[in-house]
Design a protein around this nucleic acid. Structure first.
Lengths: 180, 180
DNA sequence: CACATTAGTAGCGAGTCGAAACTATTGCAA
DNA sequence: TTGCAATAGTTTCGACTCGCTACTAATGTG
């Protein structure tokens, strides 16, 4: 077995363990991941289309997942005024609570030496950017590390959308993000 | 966002990209992973129960997946003579071909520097052992790195099952494996 | 103003998934 | 040895995912 295959197996196996253990609270892995995306994404990125693009699924599938989450009271939909086609989903308080629970994978990661953690983070980040490129997907990175992020205002400013950012927003996921 | 959460997100996102891209050949991600497990497991570990334990799912679910793979001609079932309850699945030639195809994740990993790869491998391996422990799951490691592996014969010998091993077998996954 | 594009949905068929109930076989202990 | 418990695999159920195709409504663009 090559090292490449080893790493692939480790990644998929860890994801599977996490998925298997994440079934509680009347939620399945896909629903939980959608919830997590909404929690991390900024207000311009919480639409079905963006969630679908980030999660690597289709609009049709994500619609069903979001409707199911809405039925259960974990998310709420807000229709946009400017563009009447688009919808933005946000977490309800119940949804917030769910997303803050720590899964088995997080607990396992916390038990590894922090020096090792830094290397894993860097390594996986590298693999991710390669995979996204191969797949023709967008980066969906953190606002702050975007080439449109400016420091002309205290908390940061988005040069693309021409608006001032809050400290929270600067750390959220943005669908327009382009790495520096 | 903490580093722990970052790593978790990277792992689950990479797994999702791989899953999304692995839909071809009339197979879904779960079926492909089952195929891959059968390809790597030794002849004592290719039963529904062991596959279920490795993949972190239930016997009921894996039965359906295996039946579906058998219908499509990717695996064949062999009933055991010694224990009439148990079944061992093996890949057909068609199944072999499928499993040898390189997915997007493997191609992405190959593009990263090999020095980084070694660190990722070690780091993820550490996380995996922690996660398995937290989950009360068995290791399912490689035969050769088991405390029952002996070098009394040329190619290796299993002290637990009391039998000589082939070079191929020594590198396969075993459900009895206990790390040294 | 016509036409292409984009955002979101609905329905289909195959399949996953956990859970629970069930059959057949094997192991073990009194 | 007989009687039960444990084990291996299966089946069925209901909710859901997923890719796909076809659809509506709103928004761009030439």
């Amino acid at each position: 077995m090559t090292q490449t295959k080893n790493i692939k197996d480790l990644i998929t196996r860890l994801a599977r363990i996490e998925a298997g253990a994440s079934w509680g609270d009347d939620l399945n892995p896909a629903q939980r991941m959608t919830l997590e995306y909404l929690n991390n994404a900024n207000r311009f990125s919480r639409s079905p289309s963006h969630a679908a693009a980030y999660l690597g699924t289709t609009r049709g599938t994500i619609t069903q997942t979001l409707k199911s989450l809405a039925r259960k009271g974990y998310v709420a939909e807000e229709r946009s005024e400017s563009d009447k086609r688009s919808i933005s989903y946000s977490l309800t308080n119940t949804g917030q609570k769910i997303v803050n629970q720590q899964g088995i994978l997080e607990r396992a990661i916390e038990k590894t030496p922090s020096m090792l953690r830094a290397e894993i983070d860097a390594g996986l980040r590298d693999i991710l950017s390669q995979a996204l490129q191969l797949n023709g997907q967008k980066a969906f990175g953190i606002c702050k590390y975007c080439r449109h992020f400016e420091t002309t205002t205290a908390d940061g400013y988005c040069g693309l959308l021409s608006l001032a950012l809050t400290p929270t927003e600067a750390l959220q996921i943005c669908h327009e993000q382009e790495p520096t």
